[in-house]
Amino acid sequence: MVRPARSEDGHQRPDPDPFNDRDHRAFASAVWSVPSYLLSGMAVYGGLGWLLDRWLGLSVFFPIGILVGLGLAIYLVYLRIGR
């Protein structure tokens, strides 16, 4: 198990105890969910843009949707873990 860390001057530091650290847990799951957040942002808003393009007969909204989706996904990552 993890013992309380001791610095050189002999003072005992508080036990970091990584097992009960909720931040650590959130981080561990967040690291792996970042790529799927980004992919799903692209999928949702890129798909919306693609449908708009099909409807209007254009080809602008698909790339725009992908970029917007990426931006929103990064914002979501920021909201979930960045604050």
Binding site: S36, L39, S40, G41, V44
Partner: peptide, 17 residues
Amino acid sequence: ILTPIELISTFVLRPFT
């Protein structure tokens, strides 16, 4: 805005990735 992203990410892309 964000719930669709959350939905696709958790229930579709998570098992996929």
